[in-house]
Nucleic acid binder design. Structure first.
Length: 883
RNA sequence: GGAGGAUUAGCUCAGCGGGAGAGCGCUUGCCUUACAAGCAAGAUGUCACAAGUUCAAUCCUUGUAUCCUCCACCA
């Protein structure tokens, strides 16, 4: 074989882009034809509003790991990518652009506006796709979808009409959350509550008969024009007599009654509440109970309308508040103003204060949908990782409220409902009608509103596969397997996908739900644009490479815990990739002139058997970690196997045979090293995809591409406890001598003679003798002698005790006797404490009686070990004093 | 008000009932023929606090404290 030369420096820029293009070109992201069980993941579609952030990087890194892992198991694996039209968010982006040009969307008109929005969508989509490619996501681009493409739009209509036919969609006048800035209704869960300092105003409402007044408290005096009553608790003794009396609403000439309602808290304020059904959810309910009128005071833009006195009309609610308070004070109605912090709802997209707003909206009746989704969980069809999120899921499902799905926007799926201008007939249809079925008129008008974005994303796991058509994809790939998502969209998305799948296909859309943490900065703050503390994934890739990013995120992603990072965090992955690169560089330098031979297990040394055993254990650990989605454990396993076991011990151990062995030995050694390297690339590929592919292609023993190679399987038959324990003995002996040398500051170039004494000939001593050359290297000894008969004179040598042996280092010239004695004394102290604990345990009759026999046996062994260590240390001190 | 999470080395965090761990940082010595982004050796801990269960608790139970989420309510 010819040596292969790798660049001296690991530089991911040299190959990441090239390799991605080659995977894509060869179609290696597409599911293979095979009898094995399919494996499907749908990517949570990023919004086409912007570029990907670190949360996306985490999410997609984990998906990529799962997908590559499954693909290498030989399963036909499909990862469906796509993007979300993100109604409100995208419309906001375009409106902001327009604003800069001094325009409103109305100036363009609906059609032009949508056209322009498609342009923005295209631009952002291209950026997002490029980013996913840079990250190395192995999703099947031939299956890419967009929530507003033709097929998905058909799915949305199908879903809407089907639900309507099942009586699960209705329209009506309700009090909904409304964002005046976005100009649209919001669903309950699209409102974010924030505690803000506010004021509580105590206002006098005089009796209509002039016999005095009562006092009510309000945080929003400007809504008083919508008051239709004042309520007290029916049990409130204080107000028994005034119930039914009339009040004169200040600043107006309207009269309102005093009524009773259970919801009034007698303890709060004066125990009297003004009832404004059109502007407060509680009042709305109260109004319904008491058949009260609801007076809407707001225009869609958040200004006050014609139902308020003229001087306040056309003014934003918050501005009007000052005027009203002022006028109340002038009129002598204002009693006092107190500070009052309370939670105020904000729009989750633009953060404007949300107004309760009375309007005609479309709703999905959720109760029956939620019941099916709960059943899916009860039957065990879905499992959350970590499991605790199931509480959240169940709680939400059990307390579900109807879903407001209409949005007063232009960007989105237009509601498939038409109205006849002639006879007023309402037509709900899968296809655009051109005739009224009742009066045959052609004068039809489609509903102006569009659907909530989530009304298309909740269909994602099956709409992307072709539903409602009965496609081959749907048959093969649905239900999907694993969904990876952050916890902030369990309600918005995950729960609803389960409901939709159960409702339309009668199955859960996936069986495993992996909930990741959120990515935070090093101070634990959520990464956000406004804080400017975000880390751009592309910048990370430019600096450290995609592999470093993926591996680091994986290493830090412990079971749904939030991930705190800064730019420097990625050095972890970068250093590891660099290590892999350099180890490979070294090994490939050494294949010059060698040839690959069969690896005969009978010709293996204990070290060889050991490293194969370690590899096998690593495969087992990864298998178990991946089965429970414990990504960090998998990453740690890889890291310590490759770096600590393979590089630090095995490659170091192999150097002797590689440099000084016979041709035959060299061939065998190279063959083993190449075999291990090849297997390691396969083992590591899901976690470090680019570098493993780049290296794999250069290996003399590679077949095809690593992305489609077989994943190394754990084989119980390959467990080799003997090799494991022998090598750990060798490691311990090496560490002992190294530590002694370091403590005594003996220069590495100074080679010292070492004698290792065993009480008698045994397997361990035999192994150590066979590997004494290796020991010399690890101990930087001039020679290592194994003595089992007490023949060697070790007078004047520094002793060090190990398990079952004693090492003696001939250091006559170069030691600090007093320092060494001190160290030994502290060791005696430490071991005495341990011994004490051990003795206490063993003298405890309960322990002997109740503990598992192995535990007792282990404790006895420990005690013996402590005793031995103490005794040896004492002897060694005596020895040292005799120097 | 309800639910959940966190509290372990200077920092970020693993640890899933039997002798306290990793990475980074720090100290010391080494440019040992792949890697100084490296190698070797170290130091550093009331495992938040208190009680309980257990032969045995960082781990299980209960309570307390501090911090963080989410849900509900707030005239």
């Amino acid at each position: 074989m010819k040596a292969v030369e790798l660049n001296r420096n690991y530089d991911p820029k040299d190959f990441e882009e090239r390799i991605y293009a080659s995977w894509k070109e060869k179609g290696e992201f597409a599911p293979v034809d095979s009898d094995k069980e399919h494996f499907t993941v749908v990517m949570p579609p990023p919004n086409v509003t912007g570029i990907l952030h670190m949360g996306h990087a985490l999410n997609n890194s984990l998906q990529d790991i799962i997908v590559r892992y499954q693909r290498m198991q030989g399963r036909p694996t499909l990862w469906v990518p796509g993007t979300d039209h993100a109604g409100i968010a995208t419309q906001n982006v375009v409106e902001r652009q327009l604003q800069k040009e001094g325009l409103r969307r109305q100036d363009l008109g609906r059609e032009k506006f949508i056209e322009r929005t498609w342009g923005v969508k295209e631009k952002h989509h291209d950026i997002i796709k490029k980013q996913l490619e840079k990250m190395g996501c192995s999703c099947d681009w031939d299956h890419e979808r967009f929530t507003m493409d033709e097929g998905l739009s058909r799915a949305v209509r199908e879903a809407f009409v089907t639900l309507y036919e099942r009586g699960l969609i209705y329209k009506g006048l309700y009090l909904v959350n409304y964002c005046p800035k976005c100009g649209t209704a919001l669903a309950d869960d699209e409102v974010e509550y924030e505690n803000v300092p506010g004021k509580l105003y105590d206002v006098r409402y005089p009796y209509a008969d002039g016999s005095g007044y009562i006092t009510v408290a309000t945080t929003r005096p400007e809504t008083m024009f919508g008051d239709v009553a004042v309520a007290v608790n029916p049990d409130d003794e204080r107000y028994k007599d005034i119930v039914g009396k009339e009040l004169l609403l200040p600043l107006t000439d309207r009269k309102i009654p005093i009524i009773t309602d259970r919801f009034v808290d007698m303890e709060f304020g004066t125990g009297m509440v003004k009832i404004t059904p059109a502007h407060d959810p509680n009042d709305w309910e109260c109004g319904k109970r008491n058949n009260l009128e609801a007076i809407n005071l707001l225009n869609p833009d958040g200004t006050l309308n014609e139902n308020v006195p003229e001087k306040y009309r056309g003014i934003m609610a918050e501005e009007a508040r000052k005027l009203v308070v002022d006028d109340l004070e002038k009129g002598g109605y204002l009693v006092k103003i107190t500070d009052h912090a309370h939670d105020v709802g904000h729009c989750y997209r633009c953060h404007t204060t949300v107004e309760p707003y009375l309007s005609e909206q479309w709703f999905v009746s959720m109760k029956s949908l939620a019941e099916k989704a709960l059943d899916a969980w009860r039957k065990g069809d879905i499992t959350f990782y970590p499991k605790r999120w199931e509480n959240t899921y169940v709680h939400w499902m059990e307390n579900i409220r109807d879903w407001c799905i209409s949005r007063q926007l232009w960007w989105g799926h237009r509601i498939p409902v038409w109205y006849c201008r002639e006879c007023g007939e309402m037509i709900v249809s899968r296809t655009d009608p051109d005739e009224c079925p009742k009066c045959r008129s052609h004068e039809l008008r489609q509903d102006d509103d569009v659907l909530d974005t989530w009304f298309s994303s909740w269909l994602w796991p099956f709409s992307t596969l072709g539903w409602p058509e009965k496609t081959e994809d749907l048959r093969k790939f649905f239900p999907t397997d694993t969904l990876v998502s952050a916890y902030d969209i369990i309600f918005f998305w995950i729960s609803r996908m389960i409901m939709a799948s159960e409702e339309f296909l009668g199955k859960a859309p996936f069986h495993d739900i992996v909930i990741t943490g959120l990515v935070r900065d090093i101070q634990g703050r959520k990464m956000s644009k406004s804080l400017g503390n975000g880390i751009d994934p592309i910048e990370v890739i430019d600096r450290y490479g995609a592999d470093a990013m993926k591996f680091t995120l994986c290493y830090l992603a412990a079971q749904g815990q939030d991930v705190m990072i800064d730019m420097d965090s990625f050095r972890l992955g970068s250093r590891f990739a660099n290590k892999i690169w350099n180890a490979t560089r070294y090994l490939l330098m050494n294949i010059e002139g060698r040839s690959l031979v069969d690896i005969d297990r009978k010709r293996m040394t204990v070290m060889d058997r050991w490293i194969y055993s370690r590899f096998n254990s690593a495969a087992k650990a990864i298998k178990e970690a991946m089965a429970g989605y414990r990504f960090n454990e998998a990453a740690q396993t890889i890291y310590s196997f490759f770096w600590n076991d393979f590089c630090d011990w095995y490659i170091e151990a192999s150097k002797g045979r590689l440099l000084h062995g016979s041709d035959e030995e060299k061939d065998l050694q190279v063959s083993i090293l190449m075999d291990l390297l090849e297997k390691s690339m396969r083992l590591m590929h899901p976690f470090l995809s680019f570098i493993t592919e780049e290296i794999y292609q250069k290996l003399p023993n590679h077949k095809g591409d690593v992305i489609t190679a077989e994943y190394p399987q754990y084989d119980p038959a390959l467990e080799d406890n003997e090799a494991d324990s022998l090598v750990s003995l060798l490691q311990e002996a090496s560490r002992l001598v190294r530590a002694a040398r370091a403590n005594l500051q003996i220069a590495p170039e100074k080679k010292l003679r070492v004698v290792v004494k065993f009480p008698s000939e045994n397997r361990e001593s035999e192994f150590m003798r066979a590997e004494s050359g290796l020991l010399s290297v690890f101990m930087s000894a001039s020679s290592v002698t194994i003595d089992t008969e007490g023949r060697e004179d070790v007078k004047g040598a520094l002793p060090a005790a190990g398990p079952g042996f004693e090492a003696f280092i001939f250091v006559r010239d170069a030691i600090d006797v007093e320092g060494e004695i001190k160290r030994l004394e502290s060791e005696i102290e430490k071991n005495s404490k341990l011994l004490e604990g051990s003795e206490k345990k063993l003298s405890n009759e309960n322990f002997i009686a109740h503990a598992k026999p192995e535990a007792v046996e282990k404790e006895r062994a420990k005690k013996a070990e402590f005793e031995e260590k103490i005794e040896k240390a004492r002897e060694h001190i005596v020895l040292l004093r005799s120097f």
